[in-house]
Structure formats: structure tokens, C-alpha cells
Amino acid sequence: MTPPSVRVSEIFFSLQGESSRVGLPTVFIRLTGCPLRCAWCDTEYAFTGGETRTIAEVVAEAGRQGTRTVCVTGGEPLAQKNCLPLLAALCDAGFDVSLETSGALDIGGVDARVSRIMDLKAPGSGEADKNRWDNLPLLTAHDEVKIVVADRADYEWARGIIAEHRLADRCPVLLSPVQGKLAPGELADWILADRLPVRFQLQLHKVLWGNMRGK
């Protein structure tokens, strides 16, 4: 029987730039492919290409990096059917695993040991109609919601969604500005003015290295 495999864009070791794990040395496993085309996407190179590798090979390479913290990202990793067994295999191997997903695809099958970092798409992304709202009741305190904000309209949309779905009562919520579109201080001021129950974040990897691939 052919061993299960995934299409991998890249595997690299860096600092986590987002989520509550920001700053942690992390192995990133970036899977190829994404059904979304967000206006501010910074990983378009992962839409196509990559290399087919068995799950066992991917887990073994992660193990050679010397850290327990692993992030499976994309693209949209859940667009590959074997993402789910990859996540389970990483957990079985003793890794502390997070999944970065757009939230456009069902997260219900993700191994319960995985922290699901779900990126709700604001209108400025051009993909807000792809949000899968049925995912929200599945979130737990082990998960996180991220919303990237391009302007005041996106912020007001995010504020409304956070209130309507009581997201901050369910899991941590993180807001970040689109680099080059919204001044970080402006978003910070809005959050403070509204006393919004969220965590402000910048993409640490971009502060350190810009848009360098593999960082």
C-alpha cells in the first residue's frame, strides 16, 4: 500500500511570528495549495508547486530541527485530505502542534491535541464570503481566532463579529494590521478606545526579516 503523503511547499525553522506562541522557535511545515485568494496574501508562492513527501518523511524532518513546537500552515493546509493524518502523526511523535487555517474549511476533524489558529477573513481580504461560520461553535480555549484588518471598515466588521459570536468568551482573539495598509498604532488606538477584548499583534517575522521567504 502506498504510504500517505502530502504536497509540501517548504519546511523551515524560525521564530513563530503570530498567535500566542509568538517568539517561540518553531518548525514550520508549509503545505501547497489554497482555494482562497486574499488581497493581502504574502505566501502566493505556496499556491502551486512543492514536493510530494510521505507523512513519515515530514515527521522525521521536523524531528531533526531540535524543537517540540511545530506549526502546519499554507496556503490552506486543510485543502489536502492528508493534512489530518499529518497533524495526528506529529502529535503522536510528541510535538506541540498548531494549525494555521483560513477557517473556510471544516476544522471538526482536526486532532483535539492540535491548537487551531483560525483566520477569519474580513471584507478587505476579498474572501469574507468564504468564512465557514459553522466552525465557530467548534472552537475551544485551546484554539485562537485571528483577524487581519486593512482599514476602519474591516475593524468595525471584526468588532461586530467578536460581539455577535462572543468570540472572546470562547478562545483568544488576535487582531493585526495589514502591513503597508494600516498603521499599527492606529489599530492599537481603536482597540484601546473600544476596550475590545482582543490581543493586538504584529507579525514578528516581518519586523525582523521583512518578507524574506523561509523566515
Rank of each mutant, 00 (worst) to 15 (best):
T2E: 15
T2W: 14
P3F: 07
P3V: 05
P4I: 07
S5D: 07
V6S: 03
V6I: 07
R7E: 13
R7P: 03
S9E: 07
I11F: 05
G17N: 06
V22Q: 05
V22L: 04
G23R: 13
G23T: 10
G23A: 09
L24G: 05
G33A: 03
P35T: 03
L36D: 12
R37W: 03
R37N: 04
A39F: 08
C41W: 09
C41G: 02
D42R: 14
D42I: 05
E44N: 14
Y45T: 06
T54S: 13
I55E: 11
A56R: 13
E57A: 12
V58C: 00
V59F: 11
V59H: 13
V59G: 04
A60Y: 01
A60C: 01
A62L: 05
A62V: 00
G63E: 08
R64I: 02
Q65I: 00
R68L: 14
R68M: 06
T69P: 00
T73F: 06
G75V: 11
G75N: 13
Q80R: 06
N82S: 05
N82W: 05
L84T: 00
P85Y: 04
L87Q: 04
L90H: 11
C91M: 09
D92M: 05
F95T: 07
F95S: 05
F95A: 08
D96S: 11
D96T: 06
G103P: 09
L105F: 05
L105M: 02
I107P: 06
R116K: 15
R116C: 12
R116L: 11
I117A: 08
D119A: 08
K121M: 11
P123Y: 04
G124A: 15
G124W: 10
S125K: 04
A128E: 09
K130R: 15
N131M: 11
L136P: 02
T140D: 04
H142W: 10
D143L: 06
D143K: 06
E144A: 01
V148T: 08
A150I: 12
A153E: 11
A153G: 09
A153S: 13
Y155S: 12
Y155R: 04
W157D: 08
W157S: 04
G160K: 15
I162C: 02
H165S: 07
R166C: 14
R166A: 05
A168G: 07
D169C: 00
C171I: 03
L174C: 08
S176A: 12
P177S: 09
A183E: 15
P184L: 08
A188D: 05
W190K: 14
W190G: 12
L192I: 14
A193I: 13
R195W: 10
P197Y: 11
P197M: 15
R199K: 15
R199G: 07
F200I: 10
Q201F: 02
L202P: 09
L202V: 13
Q203T: 11
L204G: 12
L208R: 13
L208Y: 08
M212E: 15
K215G: 04
K215H: 15
